[in-house]
Design a protein around this nucleic acid. Structure first.
Lengths: 206, 206, 206, 206
DNA sequence: CATGAATGAGTCTTCATTCAT
DNA sequence: AATGAATGAAGACTCATTCAT
């Protein structure tokens, strides 16, 4: 009959816009990966970011925009880590190996990103190719050049550089997704050498 | 002034239960793959199966049960096609090759199954490992025996049969999913030989 | 901590679509007139109509559609009552008088309709001319013919039949709205003769 | 990726309170009349008045207070214009005519005021009689005295001065509202003589 | 058994209001 | 005093599920 105890009202804090945005994105990565896009309540994200729900909407127009921004956010991280990795050496094979290790290391430390990739496909089918593949396509040219360089140096057994790269892409994607979904507990990082070895020389003795 | 909710009344038709069940499952595969689990309206599935909505619920307790039954339905198909394939020859390598071809052929002709696998993960995270991986685990013993046989015959370059198989699994899974999601138009069937070749002998010259 | 007593679940009742529609419209007239369009909660309308909220949406796609249907509903009533009234006599003046009496009687017995007219203007400004005036325009031809007939019989003091009619329209509209909004308690029905008298012969002695 | 919420920071300007108040009211008249009370965003009013949103709330406690202040603002204008008009002559009939002309002229030049009157009723039903009618009531005594004076001079055909005045009020209100809502393009000013003529002598020949 | 009208819990989004700066 | 970032209450609408016919 009387006023319910209204609970401790959140202390208002003002922060720079960029920082707020980051905090919300980080909270969103965690919540979307944990609950899934649909099940995630925007209130949960707000709570986790320690802001009001209205603040989330101040920075991201809709839940959909928030999700896609979240995914873009992590994809940019992956991209920059992979790009950083290839600078380690001049040898194309070493560059490729470094890229593969960086890719696996990324998903090793942030396996929940896999969930976001899957969520996007599940919920935004109509948007066409998922952002993961959009990013992969954009980066492909650089990687193909490396493989082609190997071919030009006569170091490739197979004639088709494109097919070799495509296989590597599929292998890595499959490994990463499969590792997350099958709840495989072996670390991706540890498997890198093994994967590269088979990719390079196959499983059969000659 | 408004849409009066009056459609043509469906005629009541009685059919054998098993047939009804199949018809509903087929409708569900199509609708779930096309719309996604969330977006799929149970009414659409009922409409497509040409039954009343209540009938859908007579056969499947909830939407969730219907979806998982649908996925099981297609997984059983994949399983039986792959199992049929390996009987073609006595040679373990040939069996593996035949299995790979059957796997790729299955997803070549029913690429939308990929959507169901993704949907399951997206919407039923809490249920643990997706059915795809449950099936894969169940089948794994047979495949591992084949690889091990190769190893015993000294035909394997790598010492670890398990790692070799795991790599093949990831490669195939990645290929199939990636092919669907990146809207790659090359047929999976055509790529089988190429994929097997690299899997067997790697990309590098020795 | 335990299940709240869920309250008496509404007994499901199936009724003919047309009857349901009418019941919802009647409830909507009452609620919209009482609360106003914005303040009206669709749940209130559903409660008053003794149906679930979903049922309201089954019959009317949106709150907006429901409101406009409600207004149309009462306008149709006004229209048919006014049209019925003019059949009473052959004399054009008597017809006009009967129409005026019917119009006033309508708003006398359903003064809340005024609120709906006002609500429409307040909330759907962009839709152009309110339905009240759309209806008035549609009916105008018939009334103008009557006034013109009077003019042709030399019974009109003023030369402009259109202006005379327009004045009558404005007078009636103003009377009805003003009566409702100023909370004038005199009945519109009783004022009919007085209004007609002044309309016909003015206030000044000659 | 998204709209960063960073606009150009408004320069702080200090102005006399009364001037600020006027500027906000003027902005509010325009925005409320254009968008309607509900649809009007307080931010829009602040923007139009070129102040921060907080400043609006410094001058007017709530949106409701702001709206009612706005309406009072324009009602005061109407009142003073009508009062000024009646001083033109000593003859009661001429005074009434001047008042009618002033009333119509007011709404001719500020037709959007009609919207505010309607908005008030639509949104503040519970407050009782709208301000328009409160003002009308307050002024009524003076006008009734004029009509009574006519009656005392034997110049009234009808016995009831109150009824005559009430009819004039309703007629004017109806004319003004109807003119705005039906999107009638004839000017109110031009119609004044015609309206007065019929009000005075009716439409019928004797 | 089969049907589809009826139900209501669940959630995104808006925007008036507050208050730290 | 002035500002606008932050807040959260409120409500339309959807759709899985039920059940009277």
């Amino acid at each position: 009959m009387t006023d319910e105890p209204t609970g401790p009202v959140r202390k208002r804090v003002r922060k720079p816009a960029e920082q707020r945005r980051e905090e919300i994105l980080d909270a969103a990565v965690a919540v979307f990966a944990d609950q899934g896009y649909r099940a995630a309540d925007c209130q949960d994200i707000a709570d986790r970011a320690e802001v009001g729900k209205g603040t989330v909407y101040r920075y991201f127009e809709t839940k959909e925009v928030l999700f896609l921004s979240t995914l873009t956010h992590v994809m940019e991280q992956l991209k920059s880590e992979a790009e950083a990795a290839v600078t380690v050496s001049g040898d194309p094979l070493e560059k490729i190996r470094a890229g593969v290790r960086a890719y696996l290391a990324f998903f090793d430390s942030q396996p929940e990103v896999v969930e976001l990739v899957i969520q996007e496909r599940a919920e935004f089918r109509e948007r066409g190719s998922p952002l993961y593949f959009v990013y992969a396509d954009n980066e492909r040219g650089g990687w193909l050049a490396l493989v082609q360089e190997l071919a030009d140096q006569g170091r490739l057994r197979v004639g088709n550089a494109d097919a070799a790269l495509r296989m590597l892409e599929d292998l890595l994607f499959g490994t990463v997704v499969s590792s997350r979904l099958s709840m495989d507990r072996r670390g991706l990082r540890e498997r890198a050498s093994e994967i590269l070895d088979i990719f390079e020389y196959g499983v059969l003795a000659r």
